[in-house]
Design a protein around this nucleic acid. Structure first.
Lengths: 243, 243
DNA sequence: ATAATTAATTTGTCCGGACAACTTGATCGC
DNA sequence: GCGATCAAGTTGTCCGGACAAATTAATTAT
């Protein structure tokens, strides 16, 4: 049998993608069911599911057991945040809406200890929330904030935070931030965050870890942000400086 | 039938992951074949393949038709590049080894035109290469460099580049770089780059797009870098500045 | 001893089937 | 009209099988 240029499932995935891009299936609508795809393309359910798996991986569709397959993106939409200074970062924080979902005190595990430069087991305040552009919009980021728990006012106020806050940093009067250290890497969405972001677990995301230091060089808080998918772009400029 | 806490394939994947992490299967060695996993766990080949798909997605293993399943990572290894200035960027370029694999002149497509701020169809010099820490090491990055083709010396010299170069920017005496614009986002490895990076296609990667401007604000070259996996960390600090 | 050929092994692709789990819609009882 | 229950629809998980494609090992020929 002469080889085909690519697997059947890939061809079907490509055709479905084109259909979505051309507007045959709009965002928010349901794709044909697995059985309908089988009939339309004359393929088995396994092959149909492989094709849909490709589109799921590409984050164009989202599949829900019992509900069907929904189109969640039809074109490459990128939202771009230009952050080159602490001011940019704070402005970005002020322009987006952070909803705190949970607040707790926990003992630091390995990762948190490394992040906060403390011993494993140290008691830490942990806030968990999601960030969105506007109220009611789907979140584009999940955020975990950590601070070594102490008897200081800031730790106590962090524990009291709930609901929607805009400029968390300003809200809490953290004090003058002297420097922010950032680590940016690709990551995969943990299962526990996938649901609140409306993305498949293990799907691609951008992870930005920030550690906020005061002007005296003391670590105030650390935050881990997960931006699902490939749309979120972190932009900044490097200037040539003479030393 | 009472529900199990998680799917069989996930349990098997977790067990295999633990075996890898504990050293039962070391990096570079082969995992048991699909049939052996079926027999060991009393599962079907479909379920075994699903389990292996999970580990593939986590980039712990790599599967080759006819060869078997090789362990490529057993623990979380992160390599961290701190780049906060043009100097850092150039130093980073100098400290790593760029191997040019292809050089060509092509008409700019939509993406390239947007990158270089020129019309679609404009003739562009394109260099394709991979970057590694040391000679002989597996590449950790794939790089595509673009410049609007002209009769200028730089365009001609770009076309002549081949083999291994270290500091491409220095090599070509691009001239004083005044500014570098950077866009960082999560992405997925295109199929055509997966092989040379030794990773599965569509797997997670960090995409860093840089546009180099001279001191007069003129765009010199643009580069798109893909860092596969979640290990590559781009670090930089933001300083508080008074306005 | 070496090269070519063949066989075996292994993963990739595709098929069909069955049942679980979840969601949605229809029907019945109050 | 509303709530509870049931049926239908849909995706998720698991099974078994077959053949293709790629790689490796064994065998054969020189």
């Amino acid at each position: 049998m002469p080889p085909i240029s690519k697997p059947r499932y890939q061809s079907v995935a490509d055709q479905l993608r084109r259909d979505i891009e051309k507007g045959r299936y709009r965002v928010g609508s349901l794709l044909p069911t697995e059985l309908q795809i089988c009939e339309s393309y004359g393929i088995s359910r396994h092959t149909a599911r492989e094709a849909l798996r490709v589109l799921t991986h590409d984050r164009m569709i989202e599949r829900r057991q019992g509900s069907g397959t929904m189109v969640i993106a039809n074109s490459r939409q990128r939202f771009n945040h230009s952050i080159s200074s602490v001011q940019d970062l704070l402005q970005y924080g002020a322009n987006t809406r952070l909803s705190i979902k949970a607040t707790e005190r926990i003992p630091a595990d390995d990762d948190i200890a490394e992040l906060l430069e403390c011993d494993v087991g140290t008691e830490v305040v942990h806030l968990h929330g999601v960030r969105s552009e506007h109220k009611g919009e789907a979140p584009f980021c999940v955020t975990d904030i950590y601070r070594i728990a102490g008897k200081d006012a800031l730790s106590k106020r962090l524990m009291e935070v709930s609901g929607a806050v805009y400029a968390l940093v300003d809200e809490l009067e953290i004090g003058h931030i002297g420097m922010v250290e950032q680590d940016i890497s690709a990551a995969q969405i943990p299962a526990e965050n996938a649901a609140e972001l409306g993305v498949p677990k293990h799907s691609v995301c951008l992870q930005i870890t920030r550690r906020y230091f005061d002007t005296g060089g003391k670590l105030i808080v650390a935050a881990v942000n997960l931006h699902p998918g490939t749309d979120f772009v972190y932009s900044m400029s490097l200037k040539q400086s003479r030393g």
